[in-house]
Each structure stands twice: as structure tokens, then as C-alpha cells.
Design a protein around this nucleic acid. Sequence first.
DNA 1: ATTTTTATGTGGACGGTGTTCACATCGGGG
DNA 2: CCCCGATGTGAACACCGTCCACATAAAAAT
Lengths: 214, 214
Amino acid sequence: MTPPADPPPKRTTYRHGNLRNALLDAAVELAREGGPDAVALREVTRRAGVAPNAAYRHFADRGALVHEVSQAAMAQVARTMEAELAAVPATDDPAARARARFRAVGTGYIRFATREPGLFRTAFHVPADMAYATDTTAAGAGGLTPFEILSASLDDLVTTGILPEDRRPGAEFLAWSAVHGLSVLMIDGPLRGITPDQADSAAQDVIDMIERGI
Amino acid sequence: MTPPADPPPKRTTYRHGNLRNALLDAAVELAREGGPDAVALREVTRRAGVAPNAAYRHFADRGALVHEVSQAAMAQVARTMEAELAAVPATDDPAARARARFRAVGTGYIRFATREPGLFRTAFHVPADMAYATDTTAAGAGGLTPFEILSASLDDLVTTGILPEDRRPGAEFLAWSAVHGLSVLMIDGPLRGITPDQADSAAQDVIDMIERGI
DNA sequence: ATTTTTATGTGGACGGTGTTCACATCGGGG
DNA sequence: CCCCGATGTGAACACCGTCCACATAAAAAT
């Protein structure tokens, strides 16, 4: 029950040596636990064992720090989607494979949202002052952003003949809306408090709807 | 360019007489302009021309105040949906009418989100400490919550034979997810900055998907 | 090798916030 | 009529983000 943290390592050198990363790590941890609002600059510096102002040598202000956390969180979304894609069993049927991969993309997205709600909310946090509305992209290990991963899976649906070509334009936003909406409703909407099993089931239902309705 | 506000009316009586409502009104206005985080207790009391602590005679803490704003915002969602429903042209064909009403429900929801993003975000704001996770419902003029309005419109789809009965269970969450997701993506997601025309068009596309996929 | 520049971390301050405690002021029920 | 409970006030505390002037040490220039 010592919530503050382990004793700060009492750095001996004047320079920290890796402050920027230390700050970022602490900030990510805070966001993981409590969402974007929980990222307090002072607490972050405290955990790094450094004076509050030291943060300003590495980040313009709190917004810049949160923005970087947001980027990191978005990259984690991409990685979770990639992991789900990698778990898709091999098949000879390219159409079945394309379908399974499309479903994996959506499943990974929703899984990340329910497993890491704090980071998920941070990934989609847009600051009030619009200063950091830069769409600097955040990619996963494969170098693709979540949006690009989704797009690729939709392209495969078209090339395998599952999705008619004339339905392709704008399909990203239809799929994204449904999957994102379910995520939000489960995280802090009326579906909050659902069990993980129910969450997975709901995810599959929503993806079913997308496949039929897209 | 006097952002603070008009001069506080310099109340003469010791009692305010209507403080609770005055505080709530100011809080709603702040939420309207900047979302839930913009609701500052001190600013609210300032606008009501009263000392900061006076708020604690009417609300347990800031969370309680924001929660009430959230309820009020949810009620406005319901009213917007009702307004959209009322605008559905009369028809003899009950099936066509049911479809139109279902679409109106979704359209109203998305319209409110894009027109009042601050209130929309506040309506779905769940406090960090989970203290106010009470699901006290917020109804519109017709006495129905947004969720109940949606449910009713889905019931009508079933009775008019548009929606097969076996697809009815859980359909609320499918529809809600898609519509809510689009709203969020347009408010502070990657679809932010879209024109109102594009927003309406995207809304219709999403509702099309729901109708096909539900 | 010595000096100077630059990057990085510190200390102190200011104004903002939510919240609590003790106190002031009234309005209405005994 | 009086007093008591409801309502509003004042001062204080802790926390936050941010800015200023300053300290320190590493790197670059001499």
C-alpha cells in the first residue's frame, strides 16, 4: 500500500542520462492507470526523481508529453492488431483467410480497448487547445498505422471477391465506426462492467454486422 | 472580447434564491464550450456571483456537479432524437414509416454529437474515481432515454416485418456502437474537421450499414 | 590544457484548481 | 419571539502547470 512508488533511485550524477525516456515511461504508466487526465507533469518528474521543471527541457508543455503518450498508445493498438493477425491460422482458401484477417483486425482493436482502457482513451485524446492536433502517425512493428492495417485487410476482401468493389470506398470508416463505438461503450459507456467473455462475444457480433452491412 | 462574462449582477440579498440552478446553468454552458474538463467549480461559482464554497451546499463535489451536467446533456440527446422523429413525414406505409423513424433516431444522435460536441462528450463522461457511475437515467421530453427511444424504433422494425425477430436481441448495441463510433470519430477522431455536409452523408452511410448488417 | 559555449537540471515563485474548517447571516417552524 | 437549520463567506491547504533566474557539467573551441 505505498501507492506513490518505489523510492526514487537517488541518482548521484547531475545528469540523468535518459530523462526523456524515463519521463515518457512514467507518463505512459500513468495514462495506463487513469487515462490522459492522470498524466500529471509533476508526478511524472517525481517518479523520474527529478525537479518538475526538468520536464520542460524535453517537452514543450504537458500537452506535448500527453501527445507523445498518445502516439505510443496508438502504436500499441497497431501492435495488438498485428498480434491478432499473426494468430490467424494458415489456410489454403484465400477468401477464408481474408475474412479471418479482417475479423482479426477488428478483434485486436476491441481487445486492446478493453484490456488497456487508459491507453486506449489516451490514444484518442485530442487536447482542448487543439495545439497538438498534428496527425503524426503512430505505427506498429510492421510500420503500418491501425488505419492502414484496416485498409489493407479491406483491400484483401476486395481482391478475394468477398467485398464488391463498389462498396470499398469509405468502408474503412464504416468498419472503424462500429468497432470504435463498441469499444467506447464498453470502456465508459453503458456496456461498461461487462465480463471479458461477453465483451468478446459482443465484438464478434459487431464484426458480423460490419461484414453484412459494409 | 470580454471572455470572462457580463458583470455578475451584484446580488443584494444574502441568499441567492436559485443558486443550484444558476450553478448548473453555468456548468452546462462551460461543458458546452469545452467538454467535461472545462467545468471548473470555481469558475462556475464565479459566474453565479458567489463564493467557491457555496457550491458545496448543493453538490457533494465537482464530480457530482459534472454528473448532473452529464444527465442534462443526455436528456438533450433524447430531445434531439425526438425532434428528428417528429420531423419524419407522415406515410401510410407502416414499414416505410418504421424505417424512416429508425433512421431518424440515428440521425438525431449523430446530429447532436456534431452540433454540441462539448455536451456530447460530457454526456458520456465517466469520472475517474467511478463514484458517480450510477446509471440514473436521463430522459427527454417524452420521458424516454436515448436507449429506450432506440429500442422502441427497433421494436417497430420487427413488428413491421423489416427486421427478423431472431435478429432483434442485442440489436440496440450493434446500432448504438456504429452510430456512437462515427460520432466520436467525427468529434475528436480522425474524421474531425469534416464539413457538416460530409458529416450528414457519413451518418447516412453508417445507418445504411446498420440496416443491412443488423 | 584551458576557456567558452551549450545542454540539462534546480529552486523559487505565481496563479489556477478542488476541498475543508470555522464562522456569518438569515428565514421559517417551535 | 426566538432559535435552529439552511445557506453563503473567508481563510487556508495541497496539488497542479508554468515561468524566471541560476547552477552544473559535458562538449566544443581555442
